[in-house]
């Protein structure tokens, strides 16, 4: 298979497969827990569940007030990684073109320079988090193989995307970039990366459980 045929496959059936696995799997991962349900709470409520649940979804995205230096590091690096990744994913014009060509919706792009900065910061944050994972005793203890695998799978699209405009061979790097993206898409439902949706249900439950008792979680 030559590069052109491979690229064609990756932009066609390969992508289709990855998107099927991703969509099917992620919807499953979100709905399965929620559909397991929970027992009706018989205690008299002091507060509501919906509002506090939604509030917690929003509130846990904000910067926590009190943190240890260790906590500061994790939160800041985590923030930079997530924001950098999302900016790169959602505001690069080529990515918007993908969505536009697929779903017909689009929005303004950011200049490539800004995207590159976001991607570099995101990569730097990932690198810092990796070093922290292998040096921090807590993180080392609670980490398993999946944490490292997922780290690599998340890093690759950022790295290959950034390398795309510097690569001697654009096409080869584009192929590597698309492969890395499709691997990531396939991996998401099977790994902790499913938190990209389940964090919403988790935060909601957390906020709802506390809200029922009149506590703002």
């Amino acid at each position: 298979m030559n590069q052109h045929a491979l690229l064609f496959f990756l932009r066609g059936q390969g992508l289709k497969f990855a998107v099927i696995v991703f969509t099917f799997g992620l919807i499953y991962r979100l709905l399965h827990p929620v559909l397991l349900g929970r027992k009706k709470n018989l205690a008299a409520p002091r507060g509501g569940e919906w509002g506090p649940g939604m509030r917690t979804i929003w509130h846990r995205s904000l910067f926590p007030v009190r943190l240890t230096p260790r906590g500061h590091f994790i939160i800041i690096a985590g923030y930079i990684f997530h924001l950098g990744f999302l900016i790169t994913l959602l505001f690069l014009s080529q990515h918007i073109e993908l969505v536009k060509n697929t779903f017909g919706i689009y929005w303004p792009a950011l200049p490539p320079g800004a995207i590159s900065i976001a991607a570099v910061l995101s990569i730097a944050a990932l690198a810092a988090l990796f070093v922290h994972r292998i040096t921090d005793p807590v993180k080392r203890l609670i980490s398993d193989f999946q944490d490292y695998l997922v780290w690599v799978l998340t890093l690759l699209p950022l790295l290959t995307g950034l390398a795309l405009d510097m690569a001697a061979d654009y096409q080869r790097m584009l192929i590597v970039h698309i492969i890395s993206v499709e691997l990531l898409l396939i991996a998401i439902p099977f790994t902790k990366l499913a938190h990209m949706l389940t964090t919403f249900s988790s935060r909601w439950y957390n906020g709802a459980i506390a809200g029922y008792k009149g506590v703002k979680a």
């Binding site: 399965h32 397991l36 349900g37 240890t68 906590g71 902790k192 499913a194 389940t198 439950y205």
Partner: peptide, 21 residues
């Protein structure tokens, strides 16, 4: 004891280690 919240919580943990603090 497994219910919606439990399954959701286990699904979401990213091993960030913040709870230690």
């Amino acid at each position: 004891q497994i219910d919606g919240p439990m399954a959701s919580f286990f699904s979401s943990c990213v091993h960030c280690g913040l709870c230690a603090d």
